Computed example of a mutant assay.
Amino acid sequence: MLSFGRAFVAWKEWDRVSLRREFVRLASVEGANVSAVCRQFQISRKTGYKWLARYQADGDGGLSDQSRRPKNFRSPTSPELERQVLAIRDAHPTWGGRKIRARLRHLEVEEVPAASTITAILKRHGRISEQASWERTPYERFQRDAPNELWQMDFKGEFKMSNQQYCYPLTVLDDHSRFALGLVACGNQRRPTVQQHLVNLFRRYGLPQAIYTDNGPPWGSLNSPTRHTRLTAWLMRLDVQVIHGTPFYPQGRGKEERFHRTLKAELLQNRHFDDLAHTQSRFDPWRDMYNQERPHEALDLAVPASRYHTSSREYPEQLPNFEYSEHFQTRKTNSMGQFQFAGHVHKASEAFSRQQLGLRESGEDGIWDVYYCHFRIGQLDQRTHGGPLRRPAETWDKSK
């Protein structure tokens, strides 16, 4: 049985099978470091290779006591095939002919019909209607070149549970693969809550190069000269870029917005949840299905898990020390995030309270770039009488 130490405890049988499946698929990616994946899943190499061997021998069936082998059909228009198509549609009412066809092929069903034939089956059995069909809004598609180059993070809109408390779903998505790294039922949107869940994800998947967020709390503040918060300062200490999207421009978070729409349509809409534990018990299998089974249009109908592998950058349990090179002057901020330079007081942000900042000339007369660790967080004008740092056009560029 997979064991996940502090972050994952008391898993039921389904959860164990789900985690085993995710482990073997990540460890089976070409070029994957199996030892590193074992460490991220907090299992021994012996246990990891055992599940890899069982998976290679029997596929998903080797990870569970129940057989997961799909049925094969003699005829693409047989009653058995139609029942299979309708069962997939009933389980996933927003899926159309293309997605169902991709799922049947993934299940190695013989003689899978064309998407148009599957659509005809759905229409013939009354499964296609205005209510059941997904109303698509096209997005301009772009993506990073490899997994873990960029994660996107946001909260899905809150909803009230049966206990009259609110759930705030925290979602974390890999930009390249659309792999849903995290779908967490949170009771609030505060920094300690988000930070602990990020630690759990970092331990499991490693560190990304960058994380893209909006400007709302706990990862952004439009009232801060640099937009940064204590959460993003912590991420920068881990050498993770923080990219704040353009204010009031949600299209920049298109993948997260699209994921939220899918989550609402396939899981949240017209459903009731008792409390956070019950909500999470519904989130976990849906996330597994989204990653492992649901064909994705933007991936040529591949599943996200087929495009994702864990990061080679492992999470450090202790924050690493950081020292600026000789090219920087350094200043330590006070509790308000202020520091003195050239006889004047400048304000970075309370996010950098009592931290060392690095300053170096920008090449423009009187303008100094201000860095926190590797990242430029703002600029100051030596010719002024102090005040807040100004935010440069591209604060997410790492220093050379």
Rank of each mutant, 00 (worst) to 15 (best):
W368K: 00
Q340H: 10
R69M: 11
P392F: 10
S224D: 05
Q40M: 12
S18A: 12
R383I: 03
S177D: 05
L122M: 12
E108V: 08
E110R: 13
L238F: 02
S35P: 00
F341N: 00
I367Y: 01
V9M: 05
K50L: 08
G61P: 02
A305E: 06
F8R: 13
G5Y: 10
R20E: 03
L231C: 04
F4K: 13
L19R: 09
R294Q: 13
T279F: 02
I88P: 04
A10D: 12
R237L: 00
A210D: 02
P247H: 07
L268K: 05
N188L: 10
I121H: 11
S44K: 05
N163T: 02
M161I: 12
S353P: 03
G387A: 09
A27N: 09
D90W: 00
R144H: 07
K400V: 14
G216T: 08
T119K: 06
A348N: 04
Y168I: 07
D369E: 15
V199W: 01
F341S: 00
S3N: 10
S133T: 15
D15P: 01
T310G: 03
R124A: 15
T384N: 10
P218M: 00
V242A: 06
R294P: 01
Q280H: 11
T229P: 01
V109Q: 08
F73R: 11
Y324I: 06
F179V: 02
A32K: 05
R83C: 05
L86R: 01
F339K: 00
G5D: 15
E326M: 08
S353G: 01
L181E: 04
F273L: 02
P316E: 04
Q338G: 03
R178D: 05
R83K: 14
Y166V: 10
M336L: 12
R98S: 10
Q209D: 10
N33H: 09
V24F: 06
R261K: 14
E130G: 14
P70E: 06
Y212K: 12
D239A: 12
Q56M: 06
H344R: 15
V17Q: 10
T117K: 09
L389P: 01
R261Q: 15
Q280A: 08
L299T: 07
T119I: 01
R271I: 00
E350Q: 13
R313V: 03
S177H: 03
